[in-house]
């Protein structure tokens, strides 16, 4: 609601389809993490991580394997519980209140590395089951919505197929469409292209770029540095459960402050 007011207050129409982050500063963060810590037994995975994501902002998180990237974004929709600090999404604090958790989850879509489509349902049913059960949508309306999003990810002709009959790239696009059918305000991506063959990576990245252009708030864990460069407003490097570098793509790639970032970039750009 405050966003609408803020938008009408801003006098200058934005020249690009997506407004630059500075214009969105006044809207307050949509996702707010304050000193979030998490332990698996005695092992501390996250060390006082703080992060603000404003509406429409695109954040890319990268970092070495095991640095806690997945854990961090899974805390945002409480697939994992944090033990210290606070996570606030759209003004609601994430506690163990079941009602709040469900309210927050309905607003956050998540795309996984391994697609996680329901193999016993065809593509159309994969897309409609969430809206019907969670948003109480009529079957007819849910199917219309599903076809809209299948067209957006450019595979409407696969609606009657089953997930295992599709290629990896197609499955991931169905998974993206499935999340979008819940009409979330925020999308989380956990290495959505890591399980794909090179020729399929592009079709998924294109879908994500289109989504970013439409103004979706996104947090992507990915090692696709090209994607980070063109799409991200903010690139973050995680190492050992801490955010060690955070900045615009220009700063992050052009002039990293932390030596670990330089080391990471050298390693990843070698491939």
């Amino acid at each position: 609601m405050s966003n609408i007011i803020a938008q009408t207050q801003s006098p200058s129409p934005s020249p690009s389809p997506s407004p630059s982050p500075s214009q969105r500063l006044d809207q307050g963060p949509m996702i707010k993490l304050r000193d979030v810590s998490k332990w698996y037994g005695h092992f501390q995975v996250l060390h006082d991580v703080s992060l603000d994501v404003r509406k429409g902002e695109r954040v890319v998180i990268c970092g070495p394997s095991g640095s806690g990237k997945s854990t961090l974004i899974r805390c945002i929709n409480r697939l994992e519980e944090h033990q210290k600090g606070e996570i606030i999404v759209n003004g609601i604090e994430m506690t163990d209140n079941v009602k709040n958790i469900e309210k927050i989850r309905r607003n956050i879509g998540m795309v996984f590395q391994s697609f996680n489509l329901f193999p016993h349902l065809n593509v159309l049913d994969n897309l409609t089951i969430g809206p019907m059960l969670v948003r109480h949508m009529k079957k007819k309306d849910a199917e219309e919505l599903a076809m809209q999003f299948l067209e957006k990810v450019r595979i409407p002709e696969q609606a009657q197929k089953y997930p295992l009959q599709l290629s990896g790239g197609q499955q991931q696009r169905v998974a993206i469409a499935r999340s979008l059918c819940m009409q979330p305000e925020i999308m989380l991506f956990d290495e959505p292209t890591s399980a794909l063959d090179p020729e399929m990576i592009k079709e998924v990245l294109d879908t994500m770029i289109e989504l970013a252009d439409s103004g979706m708030t996104m947090i992507c864990v990915t090692h696709e540095m090209g994607f980070a460069r063109t799409v991200a407003d903010n690139v973050i490097l995680m190492a050992d459960g801490k955010t060690v570098e955070s900045g615009t793509p220009e700063e992050f790639f052009g002039n990293p402050k932390n030596p670990r970032t330089r080391l990471f970039l050298e390693q990843i750009l070698k491939h």
Binding site: N77, R105, R106, I108, F112, F118, G130, L133, V134, A175
Partner: peptide
């Protein structure tokens, strides 16, 4: 697979819906 249960939970499915569907 655990991932499918997580996918359903991340869409806001209630526990009974995760089991049932």
């Amino acid at each position: 697979p655990k991932g499918q249960i997580e996918a359903a939970r991340s869409m806001g499915f209630r526990p009974w819906f995760v089991t049932r569907y």
